[in-house]
Design a protein around this nucleic acid. Structure first.
Lengths: 341, 341
DNA sequence: CTGAAAGCGCTTACAG
DNA sequence: CTGAAAGCGCTTACAG
């Protein structure tokens, strides 16, 4: 009954056209702001739209026009504030392009990612921005290319032939290492966790290269738990190495936050007895005590870039693929001090 | 050219039907898993789908069926981890119902919210979950009701006649106050910030009622900056009151994190010289030192509840409105100690 | 259980 | 600048 009412009441473009004494095609042109329509006609149509309370039906338009003004965004995790910031940047740009974003969570699982991408296709998104789940095969992206579904990779990349927006993680690592070296640290640990993907490897390699080029031991890499709550209790790992580190670089600020607590629990004073440096520079970094020195990767800006890449590709599907890699920035605060050996 | 190719190549239900030697209607029934189709016929159709690489066209289906399997979610902020967790809960449930979520950011601005809701309508979402922007007028929700667009409010509520999913903020405040009182605190400040909306007022009233019912001064409410980075510097406000508080309850964990730094900067030891209690219990609470005692409001669970309310309403548009208000839980950690006066 | 027909509300050429 | 016609790919009654 209800939906029957709704249907019956629905005012269509034809109703508008009739009331304005024009054809449906003309009314359609007015709505799409075509310059082909005369000012007087346009006004009549707009009045009719107002009077009738006409609502544009994207569903019908997309069917005919073969585009939906909809883009998909799939991320491995919605709970992590980092992805929230990324999403925020994407949404802002997509919105200002008059489009809308459909968001989905892959849980960093390739099977779910498969499902989610299929669903995106059925919903007829015009394109998708994907942070590929760990272990995504290149063949998966090839398949999407066969669908002719425009795609951009973000934060992690699998294929060189597909647009990518990210940050220069290796350079960020070099900034962190160089800074610690300038404070005379020589034995520096790198604490990592999480799944292994391009961003993971870039950070590891960045650390290694930077250490080696300074003639330092590049092998002190230790894995800590994924869950923030358990990281503090893994701090002892720092003190079970063959050599005693005086500083630790963290894969991300989550680890930095966790180790910061663990160091405190051991009675160490971060920035005095031990130096700690984070990665990502989430908002908490500034609020911590001592304030956390961290390498900023600006996720909001990455999101905006990813969205712009997709918009550009939609405009020209044939353009060559681009990689836009943002510079990172070291935010020096209080969590590092001179090496005291 | 490209899109022409795509169009030409598109395999439709009619192609599938022909290949399987059935009518289009029958093929449609198979896709929608209707029990009306015989097993042998079903299999033939499924083989044809496989062989042809048929992709279901939601756009066409939604037009005919008058529903889109799409729900809108509009939040005032995507950057705040709290909303990320809410969104995560919503997405999980909506996904498992075979639907998809369109997300939008109102920026907590009524004008943008207006725009965004209009866009949602044009896109034909089946319903929307809204965290209303501060200063949303009840008339705004009435208008949406006139659109016959199913709606559920979350975290904040404007109208009693519309479904709502939230937490019992007032009870949470009472838990915080009672706990501090049990440690003999008598002069307790309440630090707030942000826009004023139902959740704001509920916390304020919850604080006041709890304090008054213990015979304590319920008026020590102070506003701190919205931005985390600036909160620490507002800590002095705590020490410019007519009476000297021995504890502060924070409107949320962001404030708690900020004041925790500010207290540290003044040489105070949280949990010894001064007690601090947060609200929301974000993941950081456990990682801070001293560990932050906080009232948990479980945003993921609120998101799931909101999604379930919407699903239920979609199933029965006429059902009476419901309010589902989750219990909060006090997570006692290390940031509170006995009053030392 | 299956088929032929109508129609959802728009946009796109094509004429004029 | 405007109009008449066709069609996007499905689902929904209605017959059989």
């Amino acid at each position: 009954m209800l939906s029957a009412d709704r249907k019956k009441n629905r005012v269509t473009l034809l109703d508008v056209a009739r009331r304005a004494n024009v054809s449906r095609a003309t009314a359609s042109l007015v709505i799409r702001k075509s310059p082909l329509v005369g000012a007087e006609t346009r006004q009549r149509v707009e009045e009719a739209i107002q009077a009738l309370g006409y609502v544009y039906n994207m569903g019908a338009a997309r069917m005919r026009a073969e585009r939906s003004r909809t883009v998909g965004v799939v991320v491995p995790n919605l709970t992590n504030p980092f992805f929230g910031e990324l999403l925020s940047g994407i949404e802002a740009l997509i919105d200002s392009a008059g489009m809308v974003v459909i968001v989905a969570n892959s849980g960093d699982l390739v099977e779910r990612q498969d499902l989610v991408m299929r669903r995106m296709r059925e919903h007829g998104v015009d394109g998708v921005i994907l942070c590929p789940a760990a272990d995504t095969e290149p063949a998966f992206l090839d398949r999407i290319a066969e669908w002719e579904l425009p795609l951009v990779q973000t934060l992690r990349h699998i294929s060189e032939e597909i647009d990518y927006a990210g940050a220069d993680y290796a350079a960020g690592m070099r900034q962190a290492v160089d800074y610690l070296a300038s404070l005379d640290h020589e034995t520096i640990a790198f604490a990592v966790h999480g799944p292994m993907h391009s961003a993971y490897h870039e950070r590891i390699e960045g650390f290694r290269d930077a250490m080696r080029s300074l003639g330092l031991n590049a092998n002190m890499i230790l894995r800590v738990p994924d869950q923030l709550a358990q990281i503090a209790d893994a701090t002892h790992l720092l003190f079970e190495q063959t050599e005693q580190p005086t500083a630790v670089i963290c894969f991300n600020d989550v680890i930095a936050l966790g180790l910061s607590g663990g160091l405190y629990d051991r009675g160490l004073q971060v920035g005095r007895n031990f130096s700690l440096i984070g990665f990502d520079d989430v908002t908490d970094a500034e609020a911590l005590r001592p304030r956390l020195t961290s390498v900023s990767t600006a996720p909001v800006a990455i999101g905006e870039t990813a969205a712009q890449l997709l918009l550009d590709r939609l405009a020209d599907p044939a353009r060559p693929p681009r990689r836009v890699v943002q510079e990172t920035q070291l935010r020096v605060r209080q969590s590092c001090g001179p090496a005291t050996v």
